[in-house]
Design a binder for these strands. Structure first.
Length: 904
RNA sequence: GCCGGAGUGGCGGAACUGGCAGACGCGCCGGACUCAAAAUCCGGUGGGCCAAAAGCCUGUGAGGGUUCGAGUCCCUCCUCCGGCACCA
């Protein structure tokens, strides 16, 4: 409104481009212009070797699906605020972006649409990069990398060969999650409720030869790292990692076998309850236990056991733990309890896990619920060895569940009477003395299965030779490059294995006929070191360049989705330690690659649906809904739950259409303002409008002030400012403090935006003197005193506003920066300096309470004494009213905050 | 089942280490501008008592406790979300 009035008055010429644009905030052209400028000036390029003031900021790189969604926008907007903030504060910032480019979707596209996975991937990358660039993010595109090129994955092959040499990579038969639908093995993280993460088809257990990385060898170090990251990573992630590592202290006990079997004369068990050793009444072995069939053969029950094992394996394919009832079979074999010398029958049980502990469990039905259920079913004896502290007598005949609490040892020979916690230690020590066991540690963490029967992944660089076994490809012959001509016309199976020449190779050792490994590596291997590669992505001498990595690592702030809490974040920590141990990293690099972690919440939105003929929901896009009815089928629409944006629920907001309408700055601001970063965000169109309005308001206010700011002196007049301007200046500096604190470390970006909004409101209230806006009659006349005070303070306020807002809405701020006569970009201008004295309040509000209830307020100078404040507080009429006729028994005084009279 | 986290206006969310609950935004109500609308601007907005204001009462999932003072600390319970789930 003001702009048009001025234009009419000023009669601006056609050449005054800036003025013509002053009318309305139109982000489209403006954003493109500044993105061009930034790129041309190379503003986001990181130094090769930064000094001590480096800041490595990283967002988890995306899979190039071809479509950027609002979840990405949120992730990258959060990161970009931090990147711009640290840059403005003078840090050397590394802020790279790349592509997690291997993976199943490319192969599926190849199978379904006969596309070349490489072509498909690079087309997607181009498309996603284009969309990403619309957002004005501060990436150093010179460091862009894609994991699917030999220049990247070759180094994984080298590392794999070295790991093989050190026994950190190995091959073994193992039960794995096999997806028929996807024709591959899946990691545990990729299996959700017995179904694959991708198509939701059933996953079965199969025994296959697989490649593993020995994560278990690093369990202790991974756990130590978790403890060290306390405070720097979200507690939730640390908890999940700690649970996954699952360290538990216990005791290893040897039970001599009556008849040696399978080359051994004893059965080794792991228990956390050695105190219950005297209560053992049977043994339970896992179905896959190597001695299972051997013992049965000796016990004369081979066929029964074999039948049970076969049957149970089928069960285990699908069933979840809680749907599986306890079942088992007697092997016919016995062992001896080393404590009592008693005879213990050995069973195979369906609930015993082979890959935890030793795969054999000493069963104490009186004090373990699972053993109790098993014993009841097979009518096995129950022997109580722990007595409850309350004196209750446990009777095996009538117990309906196991007693698992603390108590005193009973029926335990020389240990009787001890508290069971002490019994644990004493029995363990006693076993150790007699060579029958001892204290040990068990881990829940498993080795990392990295084999994938897929062709769009990093080939595992080994050769199988009938004579020499597994032979690594010699380092000089690396990389093993994926053949370009894979056939995807056959559904299922690995096209690499079917390739006419790829599998054929002579054994590197003996020259005889060999077969190349056709499994590829899990894509989590690529994402386990990409952050190192960014330090010099072109380096062709080694996976990473020492001096660069030494200069940039660790990542100072890592940002990504909570779904990677254990998978990616555990693998990357492990791999990073391995690289360090193998000498690929300089020793100065710390064990932990990610110094701080932020896990951002999901972007959610309301869903709309109508029921189909079977009552199942049919989801609708918001634009298909009109007046509460579906435009598709005319039925009344139900508003569904607020759920994560997804194509299947049709509750997505298209990025490009959005940016076209509102601009990238509004997209960024909204995702940052609507919720704190770590919480889920609900997308609401009204909220978007609010952010848009705010930016338009900044636009208007700044443009209105532009001429005055240009003309204003750059320094404040000496001496005291008139109160009105001093108040504005105080708010300016308080806002600098708040926004700085909110961004730095705390990541309360939503409150940082609030603070900036408050400053904007104050700036609007401070008014534009030459605009005699009747609606702003409260502005009052320009106060007396130095006439340059007002313009100078307002100039500082406008400059500060743009500086504080620029990490959130960089395009708008740079444009306005230029319009108020500043050169360059806000990024280069730097973060505003904070002046403690200017931020200090000269009058404090002290609240007065009587018996804890608010009865009045006082405005007092900061240096007021207790006596002065208390005296004035008592004189407040409303306070006096409540003090009348009462006796003050205590006066609480919190300087600058409150007075509380306790009366009787 | 076990281990975490969270419950604050009509809504998203603020409240640093116990000190004015509800910042900021949305929505809503009233007003200005306009022929009108949109946009914009100004004011109001937890609930209750009171004609209104002043003022008072009440209020952060429920109940108890500690404290001069509790959204914040402690105990019990309820609800929701997340993780793990035969880990011996």
């Amino acid at each position: 409104m003001l702009g048009s009035a001025r234009r009419a008055a000023g009669g601006r010429g056609a050449g005054a481009e800036a003025g013509a644009m002053a009318d309305k905030y139109v982000p489209g052209e403006l954003e493109a212009k500044w993105q061009r400028t930034w790129a041309e000036r190379g503003l986001f390029r990181a130094a090769d070797l930064p000094g001590a003031d480096k800041f490595y900021l990283l967002e988890m790189f995306p899979y190039p699906s071809g479509r950027l969604h609002m979840g990405h926008v949120r992730n990258y907007a959060i990161g970009d605020v931090a990147a711009r903030f640290h840059r403005m504060r003078g840090k050397a910032v590394l802020h790279p972006m790349g592509w997690d480019a291997f993976g199943l979707p490319a192969e599926q596209a190849a199978m379904e649409r006969q596309l070349d996975p490489k072509q498909w991937t690079f087309d997607n990358i181009d498309e996603m990069r284009r969309q990403l660039k619309l957002l004005g993010l501060t990436y150093d595109w010179d460091r862009e990398l894609a994991t699917c090129v030999p220049e990247y994955y070759r180094w994984e092959q080298l590392v794999f060969v070295r790991m093989l040499e050190r026994g950190l990579a190995y091959r073994r038969k193992s039960l794995v999650n096999w997806s028929d639908a996807l024709q591959t093995v899946l990691a545990n993280e990729q299996v959700i409720d017995g179904r694959d993460y991708k198509l939701g088809e059933p996953v079965v257990q199969r025994e296959l030869e697989q490649w593993f990385l020995r994560t278990t060898a690093y369990a202790e170090r991974l756990l130590a790292g978790v403890e060290a990251l306390a405070g720097a990573w979200p507690e939730r992630v640390l908890l999940e990692q700690r649970a996954r590592i699952g360290k538990s202290h216990g005791t290893e006990i040897r039970f001599p076998l009556e008849q040696p079997a399978g080359g051994t004369s004893e059965l080794l068990v792991f228990t956390t309850r050695p105190d219950t050793l005297f209560g053992v009444t049977f043994m339970s072995l896992a179905v896959e236990h190597p001695l299972a069939l051997e013992l049965a053969r000796g016990g004369g029950r081979e066929s029964e056991v074999r039948a049970f094992v076969d049957r149970t394996r089928n069960d285990l394919r699908r069933m979840r733990a809680d749907e599986l009832t306890k079942d088992g079979v007697f092997t016919g074999a016995y062992c001896t309890n080393p404590a009592t010398g008693g005879r213990v029958p050995i069973f195979i049980a369906n609930f015993v896990l082979m890959d935890y502990g030793t795969g054999a469990v000493m069963a104490v039905p009186a004090h373990d619920q699972r053993d109790f259920e098993f014993a009841r079913k097979f009518e096995l004896p129950i022997k109580v060895v722990i007595a409850p502290p309350d004196g209750t007598r446990l009777d095996p005949a009538t117990m309906d569940c196991a007693y698992v609490e603390e108590g005193r040892q009973v029926n335990s020979a020389q240990f009787d009477g001890l508290p069971n916690s002490e019994g644990m230690q004493r029995i363990t020590a006693w076993l150790a003395e007699r060579g029958q066991g001892g204290a040990t540690v068990s881990w829940r963490l498993r080795d990392w299965c990295v084999s994938r029967q897929r062709s769009w992944g990093c080939p595992i660089p080994v050769v199988h030779c009938a004579a020499c076994g597994v032979v690594p490809v010699p380092e000089a012959e690396l990389p093993v490059v994926l053949p370009p001509d894979l056939a995807f016309d056959v559904r299922g199976g690995n096209p690499l294995a079917r390739h006419p020449t790829f599998p054929n190779i002579a054994c590197p050792k003996c020259g005889g006929p060999g077969r190349r490994e056709t499994d590829t590596l899990d894509t989590f291997v690529e994402s386990s070191w990409y952050f190192l590669r960014y330090c010099d992505p072109q380096w062709d001498q080694a996976p990473v360049r020492h001096d660069r990595v030494a200069a940039w690592m660790p990542v100072d702030q890592y940002i990504g989705g909570i779904e990677h809490a254990v998978g990616h974040l555990m693998y990357a920590r492990f791999y990073h330690m391995v690289l360090k141990d193998l000498g690929f990293l300089p020793a100065s690099v710390p064990d932990e690659p990610f110094a701080r972690l932020l896990t951002q919440g999901m972007v959610c939105k309301e869903t709309y649906f109508t029921p189909d003929e079977n009552g199942n929901p049919v989801w609708h896009y918001p634009e298909e809904v009109e007046d509460g009815k579906s435009k598709v089928n005319g039925a009344p629409v139900t508003v569904g739950r607020i759920e994560k944006m997804s194509k299947s629920k049709r509750n997505v907001v298209g990025l490009e259409a959005f940016v076209e309408r509102y601009g990238a700055d509004t997209a960024r601001l909204f995702t940052l303002f609507a919720a704190p970063p770590e919480k889920d965000l609900e997308w609401r169109d009204e909220g978007v409008e609010g952010c848009w309005r705010f930016l338009a308001r900044v636009w208007r206010i700044t443009n209105e002030a532009a001429e005055a700011v240009r003309a204003a002196p750059a320094t404040l007049p000496p001496g005291e400012l008139p109160p009105r301007w001093q108040a504005l200046r105080r708010l300016v500096h308080q806002t600098i403090r708040r926004v700085t604190r909110d961004i730095d470390g705390r990541f309360h970006l939503n409150t940082a935006v609030s603070a900036i909004m408050e400053l904007t409101n104050a700036l609007a209230d401070a008014g534009v003197p030459e605009a005699a806006d009747p609606a702003r009659s409260d502005c009052g006349p320009e106060p007396a005193g130095d006439p340059t005070a007002g313009p100078a303070v307002r100039r500082e306020a406008v400059l500060t506003l743009l500086r504080l807002l620029s990490p959130f809405a960089p395009h708008l701020c740079d444009e306005l920066w230029q319009r108020i006569g500043q050169t360059g970009t806000v990024l280069e201008a730097g973060w505003p300096a904070f002046d403690e004295a200017a931020a200090a309040e000269e009058v404090l509000t002290v609240v007065v309470q009587v018996l804890g209830k608010l009865r009045g307020q006082l405005r007092v100078p900061p240096d007021a004494t207790r006596e002065q404040v208390v005296e004035r507080a008592q004189a407040e009429p409303n306070v006096a009213r409540f003090l009348e006729g009462k006796k003050i028994v205590k006066t609480v005084f919190v300087p600058g905050k409150l007075v509380n009279f306790v009366v009787k």
